[in-house]
């Protein structure tokens, strides 16, 4: 037997098998669920992250440094044993089997704030000062000056947030029990047998699963590679 990476035969038969079964593996449904979850999660992350990164990078307030170090520090603890308390919180909020259980908790991450803050630190503080002299307040500086400048990195953040929530599989299988409500990644795991190893079917599924993230990437790369020219930011 020679080695074949992608024999045409299995590709077609596996996709047919994947797409034809609608009751136990509602692929389209999972796909839509994932889309709703990942898009909402990304929007939430963008809002929360850009706001906080601005404050941690450019505003002065008491305990700023300490607070940020504290946030970063706690983020370094592996979250293995937190599964049960986190589930209890989700349960108390009545979010079991709700997409919210996947949309909100991930937005607690500090890493994206750190990333955006690092990018902001490259923008000269003079920009803010000039605007402040013109009478702009913090919200205006944030929305008019900084936001347009950090668009490329926000696209990177969107990409990470979207892919991260799209690929998560342990957490969704803990919080969802309804097959119809599952997102696609844990859904696809149901195709893989308990004992039978079917690498071919799983690979077919894996390729289906990356289509939206890949499309998002293709769309995003056009923009985040656009040069973020600092001078145009000042004019605008």
């Amino acid at each position: 037997m020679g080695f074949k990476l992608l024999p045409i035969e299995w590709v077609t038969t596996n996709y047919v098998e994947l797409l034809s079964d609608n009751t136990s593996t509602p692929l389209l449904r999972w796909f839509l669920n994932s889309l709703v979850i990942s898009v909402s999660h990304t929007l939430l992350v963008l809002t929360v992250v850009s706001l906080s990164a601005f404050a941690y990078s450019r505003l002065e307030f008491k305990g700023k440094k300490m607070l940020f170090s504290f946030l970063m520090g706690t983020m370094m603890f592996p979250a293995v044993v937190n599964l049960i308390p986190l589930y209890k919180i989700i349960d108390t909020l009545d979010w079991v089997n709700s997409p919210l259980a996947m949309i909100v908790p991930g937005a607690a991450s500090v890493f994206n704030i750190f990333l955006v803050r690092q990018f902001m630190s490259n923008i000269p503080i003079e920009f803010d000062e000039a605007a402040r002299i013109d009478g702009a307040n913090d919200f205006q500086i944030f929305s008019k000056i900084i936001l347009p400048l950090i668009k490329p990195v926000l696209l990177v953040v969107s990409l990470f947030a979207f892919t991260g929530s799209w690929n998560d599989f342990l957490w969704p299988s803990i919080v969802f029990s309804d097959i119809e409500k599952m997102p696609i990644t844990p859904g696809l795991q149901l195709l893989q047998g308990m004992y039978q190893s079917q690498p071919t079917l799983l690979m077919a599924g894996a390729f289906v699963a990356i289509v939206p993230t890949f499309v998002l990437y293709l769309f995003a790369q056009k923009y985040f590679l656009e040069s973020m020219s600092l001078s145009s930011g000042v004019k605008g």
Binding site: L51, S52, F54, A79, N82, L86, A108, F142
Partner: peptide, 27 residues
């Protein structure tokens, strides 16, 4: 009293508190 920065970081802090700090505290 400069509460503007807290308006910026508030939403994240709230989510962080509920979905990260409390569980890690339990851990």
């Amino acid at each position: 009293i400069n509460i503007t920065p807290w308006l910026f970081i508030g939403p994240h802090l709230l989510i962080f508190l509920i979905f990260f700090l409390v569980p890690i505290g339990f851990g």
